[in-house]
Design a protein around this nucleic acid. Structure first.
Lengths: 205, 205, 205, 205
DNA sequence: GATGAATGAGGATTCATTCAT
DNA sequence: GATGAATGAATCCTCATTCAT
């Protein structure tokens, strides 16, 4: 029962939003009564917190697995993490949207906890980037935090427009994002620039 | 009066969210009575729609100016547009957040209109990218739509974390984003490649 | 102006009812502002009272004319009064409906006054009937008050269903009502009864 | 509870009118809270609709019983139906008045349904009259629809003035109405006419 | 485990009316 | 005569939550 309530709530919160979904909506969908809901959840807010916790904890666990895989380079880990997020859309898109939209309805304590988890996820990514820089996989002249915020913004936004059953496959999306992130969209005129610098260096050297 | 209501509403909607802000909250902040609110706005929803329209229309107008500047390359236009969005945070950050968070509370007709405007902004960016590709400013092997969604995701997300008065200046943020978008974060291993080619050329020269 | 407000109010009160018609509705129809309305009428209720007074006073005046016509028999007067009411539908149907439906929105004092006028109209009819009885024009075995209530109910009801521009002419309606009132709808089997009495009389004679 | 709300609402709607009776008035009378009201009724309007439906459905059911009594002549059925309406005053006078006054507050769909029922009641009476005419019980030179409208107007109006506990008994009222409807109020000058015919018949016999 | 009647605080909205200009 | 901004009380309605059974 608890599971069904969670599942249907996520559906409704995703479809109508938290504040526009009433307990009545939820129990009507399932076909039980108010008492039943309050037997399993102390309040509507606690239900929302539950959804948040389930989501972020699972995400962190999956992140952890990728992190601890010692056979992967940092670039590969980054790739896998982006892949993880994108492939989550199909499986957990609803939860993800609820997670990213409705946190405002948590109370201060709940929000604090969720934000800590959220930060944990982000910090780990920053660490990944930092280590990658040290290993020479990534450029060292950009602020890690901004870069990670940018990457997350880019990738997370797909929850709001990407249709996993549409014409763009998950692989293509992941590859495109990785390509942008790693190489940018500029036509390689930089070759010329670099060229000049190199030549210059040649002379000054 | 109308203007004051708009201003304070945006403040409150940004701070507490649309559904948790009551008309009472708004009028208490301003120090008028309910009747006054309803003299200027037909409903809470219409107020929200007003905020949305003001925001998107101004944004489109500013986009238009940049677009029509014939002295700029497409890359420069892209740079200016990103700069426009980032610098908007300071001036219109609240409206922007309300715009990006609360559209769900509009009714179907209102949402349709807003989404049309939203799309217009995005499509213009895609056209900018497309033309840039034709002119050889950008790579031609990536889907324009995905790229633009990615860029917008990256940039728009800053509304939620970037503090214009913090340690990172607006210019640095814009430059970082432009750099990532244009060049990616990968260490120039391709430099090596290019280097080699150059050296090779040296020799063959 | 005052006249226009009265006219449009009657229209709206008839169409939508008193309580569902707002001052705003009225002034919007006319194209003036609230101040104008309150310049001519102290309150919405006073406007309603005005409508009531205009209606009942004119009706009483017209009743008076018929009453004082010494060339008419009481039956003819009754006929003319019914005709008056029916023909009023075309001219004053809206006022009449407002008068008969919305008096509940007057306050106690206003209602008292209106009810006195209403009663005056009814009592005059009863007097007409009473005199007719004395003169042998009408039966003397029925309670005058009930009869008049009945006649008024029958006739006034037409305000709610009769369409003066429909297939039944005003004359036909008046004649039908007069016929029912005077003769009833029974097939003259009473002839037989009377017959018997007559025959009996024959014998006893 | 639902029943109590219905009962007290009818009382209040009769006494003060629908629009001047607030939900607060209703629940104060009963001594419950607003939530209770809305647990049983979706809206004030739905409550009104309920009252209308209860009233007209019961009336139609009772009409049906009289209609289907094959031992009664049409005249007797008409008499019983009028008696039904009059005797209803004591039992259902309040509902009846609400039914006849407040239908304007129903929405279009509700009104359509109620008017269909209303028409059903009227059409049945017309059929009764029509059959009576064929059987020779009633005159055949009057329009059935006008006659029925007239009778209903006469009888229904009593809801607004008749006091079942006053000096006129229900039987007397029914008999008076039936007498007017069947025989009219004219002094039998027609007797003379009939007389002459009879005498004439005597001679020709 | 589950029911569902009852609560009551809170919220959006309406509207007749006033009044300074 | 006329305006229209501002009032504020009243009203309908929603909904998370409780609790006796």
């Amino acid at each position: 029962m608890r599971g069904r309530i969670l599942k249907e709530s996520i559906d409704l919160f995703d479809k109508k939003g938290f504040s526009k979904t009433s307990i009545q909506d939820i129990i009507d969908t399932i076909g039980v009564t108010k008492g039943t809901f309050y037997y399993y959840f102390k309040s509507k807010q606690e239900l929302l917190m539950d959804i948040h916790l389930n989501y972020i904890k699972e995400l962190l666990a999956e992140q952890e697995v990728i992190f601890n895989d010692e056979y992967l380079s940092n670039k590969e880990k980054l790739n896998n993490l982006i892949s993880l997020i994108i492939k989550n859309i199909k499986i957990h898109g609803k939860s993800a949207r609820v997670f990213n939209r409705e946190f405002r309805h948590l109370d201060d304590n709940q929000l604090k906890l969720i934000n800590d988890y959220r930060k944990e996820f982000r910090i780990k990514l920053q660490k990944l980037l930092g280590e990658g820089i040290e290993k020479g996989e990534f450029r060292d002249d950009l602020r890690c935090d901004i870069v990670i915020f940018g990457i997350l913004g880019m990738v997370n936004r797909s929850y709001n427009w990407y249709d996993p059953d549409g014409e763009v496959s998950e692989e293509e999306l992941v590859n495109t994002y990785m390509d942008i992130i790693l190489n940018g969209i500029k036509k390689e005129e930089k070759t010329a620039l670099i060229n000049e610098k190199i030549i210059e260096n040649h002379f000054t050297a």
